[in-house]
Design a protein around this nucleic acid. Structure first.
Lengths: 341, 341
DNA sequence: GCGCCCTCCTAAACCGGTCCAGTCAATGAC
DNA sequence: GTCATTGACTGGACCGGTTTAGGAGGGCGC
């Protein structure tokens, strides 16, 4: 292992025959240098293979080009949710443009996340963070406010305690889903929801109830899960085991993976999709097009969502961001939904 | 937005009535302070809400508690591969123990990754990196060596150009898979491989050929894909479209998602699984237990793999790591494989 | 010839920690 | 009583950048 060269700005300055300050000016593209000097400095840097030490830069300029993201779900489930990787990739697409990096952390619970964010911010490791998966009475809003930490909350304003927020209008989307199923003639509609603690789960639950009330659907049943395929399968099995006149003829899922699991359960129980029961997924990853029948889904642009969240975080850091929703998921009908018989 | 307090070590020192150095000693748990003084310092820090500025610490101590990971696959595919999130979670489990963070970046190609690693290392943003998805003649080994950057390569030593490596023994695993299928009586075995450019794809391809030769299987066919479900479906469709006596009776896939897609294609074509064709997946995420029939798979502990890679990286940084394989994937038979008829 | 303004550049303070040489008092050995 | 040793702590250099006050030199107007 050869010892690293450790070239510093001083070496470059010496080589170019200028002061440290001049090198700094050149590399930050600030005025006050002649073109000739600038060129000499760049040439010297290139010859020495120098790149500025970002740690030193952060220390003196009081800013870091890093944003934080902590995700709080069991790894076992995370891997399966196409949502997060796509979301992260959207975030990154914006960060990259601004030569910013993403500090990622998987945590086990909100308290651990609060501790992580606290450490990141107070240790000046990040210039801001993205907060996801809000629940009712989430402690993170208060914590962020107390720290004066720039954050953008991914979630409906009713959950995010006044933080700058970006969200998808789940209530409207879920209402559209229910109306679509009702229009197909379904009266007994069920929903296999996500984690009960999560705010958006509650929002969807309330919206389904409200839509059912307006449409005069009496037989709506909703259950919650841990988002895993296994739990989705269990829930579906339970729903489809109801006595014949009581069994739902349409099931709405809170993510793709549970819908896929539901499809298998239906097959296992000899319930035909979509002839006997219609299934509707949420998120619409590629998975929905790989099953048989293909899965109808509430579809949204997760990558774009992540990108918008990142842009908003930069806005917050600059002190000029406002909360706003992104496009509402739209229904993409495929092979798993059909008129009720 | 209230202005941040900006408490520094000097304030804490003043409040505790000691020097900066003493505070530093206390917070780094180094000897040379009486318990009384230590307590006073901690009390002062707590009262002021101080936490050390990690940027400053990194600058003077010449170390950063951050490791880098760049992943190079289209986001569209990444989201679907349970592998990476699980791998990342394994990596993190070890990083967390050492209060280390993970800098994540999704890149489009090897050159971009090389540039990113270069910038990270020269900018002293990371203390080392994990390199994944090696291909033949991968430029990253040479780049890492040139920079003197501590890295651990995830991949077989034949691919990683002499870097410290951690790998799964794909050749042995794939051989076991082929032998298993052969033992079930399958003679026409096909494999739907991953990206042709990837080193481990080539290793598996060669191992399948070798196993087929030894077992005297003539009809082995192997194709490569981009790892996506769509491509897996296309490949499966093509394989199953062969004239009857030429159609494979068993198909081995390089990941889960393509096996799931294969299952649907078989159904779509009226080919029964496992009666007419056996399918065998790779990685064995939860997905394999959610299909119908359930998918037999080559299973491995991806979380543990990530953890071991992270431990090895710390070894490299400490200058004492050696290359080694992790446990070989083992066959988990489920409902998608059966004796050939 | 003088004052004034620009342009280009330098010197040095500064960011907030770490770390080492060195001070000072108390203790122990003889 | 003297000297070496140990433990507890301080002062200040240092990490590698950024930033600002200010200086040198040249051009211009009058």
């Amino acid at each position: 292992m050869s010892t690293p060269p450790r070239v510093t700005i001083k070496d470059v300055a010496a080589r170019a025959g200028v002061s440290k300050g001049a090198v700094s000016l050149a590399f930050n593209r600030k005025p006050g240098l002649s073109d000739a000097t600038r060129d000499r400095i760049f040439a010297a840097a290139r010859e020495l293979g120098w790149a500025p030490n970002l740690t030193a830069r952060s220390l003196s300029s009081q800013r870091v080009d890093v944003v934080g993201l902590a995700i709080c779900r069991p790894a076992r489930l995370l891997g399966l949710e196409p949502f997060y990787m796509e979301f992260v990739s959207g975030v990154e697409s914006v960060l990259t443009e601004r030569s910013c990096s993403l500090l990622l952390r998987l945590v086990r619970n909100v308290d651990e996340e609060t501790a992580v964010q606290d450490a990141w911010w107070r240790g000046r490791q990040v210039s801001g963070s993205i907060l996801v998966d809000f629940r009712a009475d989430d402690p993170r809003a208060a914590a962020a406010r107390r720290l004066g930490m720039p954050v953008v909350a991914v979630g409906h304003p009713s959950l995010t305690g006044g933080l700058t927020s970006v969200w998808t209008d789940d209530a409207t989307a879920v209402t559209e889903a229910v109306r679509y199923l009702a229009a197909l003639g379904h009266r007994r509609i069920a929903r296999v929801g996500g984690a009960a603690l999560l705010g958006h789960t509650a929002i969807r639950t309330a919206a389904v109830d409200e839509a059912a009330r307006r449409l005069g659907l009496a037989g709506v049943r909703q259950v919650t899960t841990d988002f895993s395929g296994e739990d989705g399968a269990r829930a579906t099995r339970s729903l489809l085991s109801a006595p014949d006149g009581d069994r739902p003829t349409a099931i709405l899922y809170d993510n793709d993976i549970m819908a896929v699991a539901g499809l298998s359960v239906a097959a296992e129980m000899g319930v035909r999709v979509p002839a006997d029961v219609s299934l509707l997924a949420w998120d619409d990853s590629q998975l929905c097009r790989l099953t048989r029948p293909t899965l109808s889904a509430m579809s949204h642009d997760v990558h774009g969502f992540g990108a918008e969240v990142a842009r908003t975080l930069f806005g917050v850091i600059a002190g000029e961001a406002v909360s706003h929703p992104v496009a509402t998921p739209v229904l993409v009908p495929r092979g798993s939904t059909a008129p009720a018989t």
